[in-house]
Amino acid sequence: MSQNNYRKNNSKSEAYVYGNTVRKLSVAMPVTKPQKRDKADDDQEKREQRQHHKEMEKAHKINFLYTVAVVGVLAFIFTVCVQYLELQSAVKSNSAEVSKLELQLSKLTDQNDMTELEANSSIDYDSIINIAINELGMKFPSKNQVFDYASKESEYVETYGKKIPAVK
């Protein structure tokens, strides 16, 4: 009970410390008289200050160069990204143009096939044969005048007085 009283009564002026360690009060440093400095000490201090100043300037230059390099790299990366996006956009537009042209080609091919079919269906081959034989005096070739020829390069053969080898 006396301990509780001690804590209550002295709580304003002192704090009770539990345990075996007591905090030390901070002690002020003793006041010393300034010592007289030598000129050599002043020169040495100035040299050190100049050296420190030069080192700081060098560090600032390095920081500036580093910053310029980082900005340059970022500008380069930004430029590459912009060009990549422009190329990607061009590829998309060209792809759309190719699709449009393929559709147009398909329509023209279908139209060409229909026109060719109409042209071939309007030809009267019997009439052509009749005019060729009766009016122009043409004859069908005999067996010894027809040669079979296999060509890998084209669908027809033109000859100008040359012999064509027969395929057997």
Score class of each variant (00 low, 15 high):
Tyr160His: 14
Ala119Val: 13
Lys39Gly: 10
Phe140Trp: 08
Arg7Gln: 10
Leu117Thr: 15
Lys54Pro: 02
Ala59Lys: 02
Ala150Arg: 09
Gln104Pro: 04
Ser121Trp: 00
Ser122Tyr: 01
Asp126Arg: 15
Val82Arg: 02
Lys168Glu: 07
Lys100Ile: 06
Leu87Glu: 14
Ala15Val: 14
Ser26Cys: 00
Thr109Phe: 00
Ser99Glu: 07
Glu86His: 11
Cys81Thr: 15
Lys168Val: 11
Met56Ile: 10
Ser151Ala: 15
Lys168Leu: 07
Lys24Asn: 07
Val31Gly: 05
Lys8Met: 13
Ile123Tyr: 02
Pro165Glu: 05
Ser99Pro: 00
Phe64Arg: 14
Gly137Trp: 00
Ser26Pro: 09
Val91Cys: 03
Ile77Lys: 07
Thr67Ile: 01
Cys81Arg: 13
Thr159Ile: 07
Ala15His: 10
Gln51Gly: 04
Glu118Met: 04
Gln51Val: 05
Lys8Asn: 14
Val31Cys: 04
Lys33Ala: 14
Leu74Gln: 03
Ser121Lys: 07
Ala69Leu: 07
Leu65Val: 12
Arg23Cys: 10
Thr21His: 09
Val167Met: 05
Ala75Ile: 04
Ile131Arg: 06
Asn10Ala: 01
Asn130Trp: 02
Val68Leu: 09
Ser106Ile: 07
Ala69Glu: 06
Val167Ala: 13
Gln111Lys: 04
Lys46Asn: 08
Thr115Asn: 07
Glu118Ser: 07
Ser13Trp: 01
Pro30Cys: 11
Pro34Val: 03
Phe76Val: 13
Asn63Ala: 14
Ser151His: 03
Arg47Lys: 11
Lys168Tyr: 04
Ser106Trp: 03
Gln35Pro: 02
Met114His: 10
Asp126Thr: 15
Gln83Leu: 11
Ala90Gln: 08
Ser142Leu: 08
Met1Cys: 08
Val157Leu: 06
Lys61Pro: 02
Leu117His: 09
Val22Leu: 07
Asp113Gly: 08
Glu135Cys: 01
Arg50Met: 10
Gln145Lys: 02
Glu57His: 06
Met1Gln: 12
Asp42Val: 15
Tyr18Phe: 13
Thr79Glu: 01
Gln3Val: 12
Ala40Ile: 11
His53Lys: 08
Ile77Asp: 03
Ser93Ile: 09
Asp38Gly: 11
Arg23Val: 15
Gln88Pro: 03
Thr159Pro: 05
Glu97Gly: 08
Lys33Ser: 13
Val157Lys: 06
Thr109Lys: 02
Thr67His: 05
Tyr16Gly: 00
Val82Ser: 00
Thr115Arg: 06
Asn144Trp: 00
Lys92Ala: 09
Ile128Glu: 01
Ala28Asp: 10
Glu135Trp: 00
Leu117Arg: 13
Lys143Met: 04
Gln44Gly: 08
Arg7Leu: 15
Pro30Trp: 03
Gln35Cys: 06
Leu117Tyr: 10
Asp41Gly: 05
Ala75Cys: 01
Ala166Pro: 04
Arg7Lys: 13
Lys39Arg: 15
Asn120Ser: 12
Gln104Ala: 08
Val98His: 06
Lys8Phe: 12
Gln88Glu: 13
Val71Pro: 00
Ser122Arg: 01
Ala150Trp: 01
Lys8Trp: 14
Ala75Val: 04
Leu65Lys: 13
Phe64Ile: 15
Glu116Thr: 12
Asp43Asn: 11
Glu102Ile: 02
Asn112Ser: 11
